[in-house]
Amino acid sequence: MGEYKKLNIKDWAAEDRPREKLLAKGARSLTDAELIALLIGSGNLEETAVELSRRILAAVENNLNELGRKNIEFFKNFNGIGDAKAVTIAAALELGKRRKEADVFHKKQISGSSDAAEYFMPLLSDLNHEEFWILLLNRGNRIIDSFMVSQGGISGTVIDVRLILKNALDRMASAIILCHNHPSGTLQASDADLKITSKIKNAAEIMDITVLDHIIIGQNSYLSLADEGMLI
């Protein structure tokens, strides 16, 4: 029996090689696995880069949004993926998130809960921990700025209402929108969610600042307390 020889991408037909395929037909012609294969460059002794990439995608049920939630250690669990390749994949996924975020920010005007959710989705939907954010708006409901208030969960983190109002007053905001994520994906407002919403809303009213909504971000979905009549 002859010595086993690993089939490298260079041994493939030219039209099947991801790099050549991209150059000839454009990036849109490549599958998700082929795009990841371009990032990692090579597979392992048993798999080509594309085969390895297919196995990585299969581990998240071929869901790129779920892949974006994974950390470096997840990628390094696959034979053939070390620090350099794991970092390359993570960097590419982060660039995709930032591009999406930049597209949303250019819109700048919030006309309903879907606009607010669209703004926060790239920031929060892929996180494995909870973050609480504030969106500052002017009188025309145009975005002034946004900032993170706390990290780690509403029930386990003290939300400083004074800090929120100070930032809103300093930036001359007329309205604010609250937002936090549920890493579990559950779209249900907890008692803690409702209590902190009421606390901030009542304090803001004293300063003539309106709390327009509290958005809860899940995985590619959201809940609007205003839409549900829960903004009390």
Rank of each mutant, 00 (worst) to 15 (best):
M1Y: 15
K5I: 13
K6E: 09
K10C: 07
E15V: 04
R17E: 13
K21C: 08
L22G: 06
L22H: 09
K25Y: 06
G26D: 05
S29Y: 09
L35S: 14
I36F: 07
E47A: 00
E51C: 00
R55N: 10
L57V: 01
L57N: 06
A59H: 05
V60H: 11
V60Q: 09
E61I: 00
E61P: 06
N62K: 01
N65S: 12
E66I: 04
E66R: 02
L67W: 08
L67N: 10
G68T: 10
E73A: 12
K76Y: 00
K76D: 01
D83M: 14
I89Y: 00
E94P: 06
R98W: 14
K100S: 09
D103Y: 09
V104G: 12
V104A: 15
F105R: 15
K107C: 08
G112Q: 03
S114R: 07
D115S: 09
A117K: 01
E118S: 12
M121R: 15
W133F: 14
I134A: 04
L135C: 14
L136F: 04
G140L: 02
N141A: 10
I144A: 05
S146K: 03
V149P: 01
S150K: 08
S150G: 13
Q151M: 15
V158H: 11
I159G: 03
I159N: 07
D160T: 04
K166A: 11
K166F: 09
R171A: 13
M172Q: 10
A173I: 02
S174N: 15
S174W: 06
S174Y: 13
A175W: 01
A175K: 07
H180Q: 10
L187W: 01
A192N: 12
K195M: 08
I196E: 04
T197Q: 00
T197R: 09
N202T: 13
A204Q: 12
A204V: 10
M207A: 04
M207W: 15
D208T: 07
I209Y: 05
V211E: 05
D213A: 02
I215L: 01
I216C: 00
G218R: 02
Q219R: 13
S221Q: 12
Y222C: 04
L223W: 04
L231M: 03
I232N: 15
